[in-house]
Nucleic acid binder design. Structure first.
Lengths: 165, 165
DNA sequence: TATTGTTATACTCTATAACTATA
DNA sequence: TATAGTTATAGAGTATAACAATA
């Protein structure tokens, strides 16, 4: 893990037929694959690709689905709380919420105790769409990780949470 | 895993003091945390944040480090192979390679058997920097995942590879 | 003075079309 | 014709600064 293999020969003298070009299409990714960061990013991109594909029918991106789910389980949640939970900066949340509101999926009402804030709620249409999307998400997850057993999936989630919690 | 909890009550009748606003700062992320995709993305962002911070001294981004590592272990690798391996589109690889070449870390030589392609190689300076960066990466990985035991880290990598391989 | 939500704006990342040189 | 590398450009994602209204 700590040792870095030294290159077979110094490329300081660029001879004509010096190093073997990668035969065919095989690329050695051995070192990168020892890194948790590399593997985590690759897996995330893999799952997100499936997610985006399946959620296209609802016209929902990953962050849209996250917002709807959080609003569903936290009715009256503020924009600021959504930003903090999803690591989205406030200026970038504005257009996001505005678009969902324009689509009639959420609505904002004055916060009962803080005059500056607006509480976000799902509309009936938003409840409907979120329920459908959540079901699609659950199914998609099974498909995107179908090489894992249920026990492995549970273990994977537990270890990932140990990383970022 | 497969069942989606139904919302506690339909918010179709927006009464005045209907739903409890999220008390204090607590947000219920329970549902999102059941999703492999959500947890994987969160963990990836967490590790990448540490990565970017520690690699700033080398002025290397994640993709820069990946390119240097692949070139180190695959001398003469082509731009196209780098693109395929790292999921970077060819037009976006151009500036990336050009910048590393301008910094004197890599050099491109005509491919011995394909007149269209250019083989990428590390320069001595590139070998030096890549070795240092790889050591920093290994250390950083330990720190970013220090809540995992060595065995857990190994298991995590194995499960992640089962997802995207 | 600090915070919520907002506008404007800039920077980065990613994606598409089209061209050239070679296979 | 197909592929490697490239240019130009568009779009999405992410970033900072500054402001009004409220705490």
């Amino acid at each position: 893990m700590s040792s870095v293999r030294s290159p077979k020969k110094s490329p300081s003298t660029p001879g004509p037929a010096d190093t073997t070009p990668p035969a065919g299409e095989l690329v050695d990714t051995g070192f990168l694959r020892t890194l948790v960061g590399y593997n985590t990013r690759r897996a995330a991109l893999s799952i997100i690709a499936v997610f985006m594909d399946r959620m296209a029918v609802y016209d929902l991106k990953v962050v849209d689905f996250s917002v709807l789910s959080l609003v569903e389980h936290n009715p009256g949640i503020t924009s600021r709380q959504l930003c903090a939970t999803l690591s989205v900066l406030p200026p970038n949340m504005v257009g996001l919420i505005a678009a969902l509101e324009r689509r009639g999926l959420i609505e904002r009402r004055p916060h009962p105790s803080d005059g500056r804030a607006m509480g976000v709620h799902l509309t009936p249409a938003g409840v409907e769409l979120t329920a459908q999307a959540a079901q699609t998400a659950a199914q998609l997850e099974e498909d995107a990780t179908n090489r894992l057993t249920a026990a492995e999936r549970k273990t994977l989630i537990r270890l990932l949470q140990k990383v970022y919690d």
